[in-house]
C-alpha cells in the first residue's frame, strides 16, 4: 500500500508545471524516504531530478518500494481537476496498474477520485543517477522571478545565453542577427528581504553557454520558490535548483554548449 497526502494540492500542480514541458512520461520511485523522479528530456540534453521527502507530506505510507510510470500529460489533466484549496492524496496498491488521485475540499463536503493508468516504462531504464555532489566553482542565489525575466528577455536575441560569473556578480549575455544583450547582476550588499538577494559564492570565475530552450523550461519552476540556485563549474552541467517548501527540491541539470 502506498499513500501520500498533501494538504496543498497547489504544490503538486506547480511541480507538474515545472516538468511538463521537458518530460512526456516519467517513473516515480516511491520508497519509505519519499518520492523521487529522475528523467532526461527526449533529446538527452537535460536531466530533471525531483525529490519529495516523506516527512514533508501530511501523511505518508509506503509499505514496499514502487516504481510507477506515469504520463505527465495525463497527470496534468487530473491535477487540473483539483480546486486550489483542495487536499490531494495519492494512493496505490502494491504491484499497481493504476494510481488514484483523491481531492478533498477544505470543508470536506466534496470528495473527487480520479484513477490513472500507469505506463509500463520498458524503455532504457535509468535507475537513479548519482548526481555528483561536487563543489562548484560558482554558486549564485538570485530571485527566481529575475532569472525567469532574464532568460525570457535574452531569448529574443539568440538561441543561447552565456553565463559569466565572477566575484562581483553574474553577467548574462546573448547575441544574434539583430543585436546583442547583456544583463549584469551585482551581488546585493544588504537586501532588505532575503528572497530579493543576489548572492555569489565563488572559488574561480566561470563562463558557460546554455540553450535558451531548456532554460525557459526550467524557469517554469519559478512559482515553487522565490529564489533559484545556479551551481556552475567550467565544462560541467549547470545545476539549476528550486526548493519546494519544506518538502524537497527540483534540480535541472543542463549540459553546456561547446564551440565546434
Amino acid at each position: 500500500m502506498f499513500e501520500a497526502r498533501l494538504v496543498q494540492s497547489a504544490i503538486l500542480k506547480k511541480v507538474l508545471d515545472a516538468i511538463k514541458d521537458l518530460l512526456t512520461e516519467a517513473t516515480f520511485e516511491c520508497s519509505d524516504s519519499g518520492i523521487q523522479v529522475q528523467a532526461m528530456d527526449n533529446a538527452h540534453v537535460s536531466l530533471v531530478s525531483l525529490n519529495l521527502r516523506s516527512d514533508g507530506f501530511d501523511k505518508y505510507r509506503c509499505d514496499r518500494n514502487l516504481s510507477m510510470g506515469m504520463s505527465i500529460a495525463s497527470m496534468t489533466k487530473i491535477l487540473r481537476c483539483a480546486g486550489a484549496e483542495d487536499t490531494v492524496t495519492l494512493r496505490a496498491v502494491d504491484n499497481p496498474e493504476n494510481i488514484m488521485f483523491i481531492f478533498e475540499s477544505p470543508n470536506k463536503e466534496k470528495l473527487a477520485e480520479y484513477e490513472m493508468k500507469l505506463i509500463n516504462m520498458d524503455q532504457e531504464h535509468l535507475g537513479i543517477i548519482k548526481t555528483k555532489e561536487t563543489s562548484y566553482s560558482c554558486v549564485v542565489k538570485m530571485p527566481s522571478q529575475e532569472f525567469s525575466r532574464i532568460c525570457r528577455d535574452l531569448s529574443q536575441f539568440g538561441e543561447s545565453i552565456t553565463f559569466a560569473c565572477s566575484k562581483e556578480g553574474i553577467k548574462f549575455s546573448a547575441s544574434g542577427d539583430f543585436g546583442q544583450a547583456t544583463v549584469k547582476l551585482a551581488q546585493t550588499a544588504d537586501a532588505d528581504k532575503e528572497e530579493e538577494a543576489v548572492l555569489v559564492t565563488m572559488q574561480e570565475p566561470v563562463k558557460l553557454t546554455f540553450s535558451c530552450r531548456y532554460l525557459n523550461c526550467f524557469v517554469k519552476a519559478g512559482p515553487l520558490c522565490a529564489q533559484v540556485q545556479l551551481s556552475m563549474s567550467n565544462d560541467v552541467p549547470l545545476v539549476c535548483e528550486y526548493k519546494i517548501g519544506d518538502i524537497g527540491h527540483i534540480r535541472y541539470y543542463l549540459a553546456p554548449k561547446i564551440d565546434d
Binding site: Y253, P256, D259
Partner: peptide
C-alpha cells in the same frame, strides 16, 4: 554556433 552537448555524456554510463 556552439554545439549542444548531451547530459548523458556526464551522468550515464551506458
Amino acid at each position: 554556433a556552439p554545439k549542444q552537448r548531451r547530459i548523458r555524456e556526464f551522468f550515464v554510463k551506458w
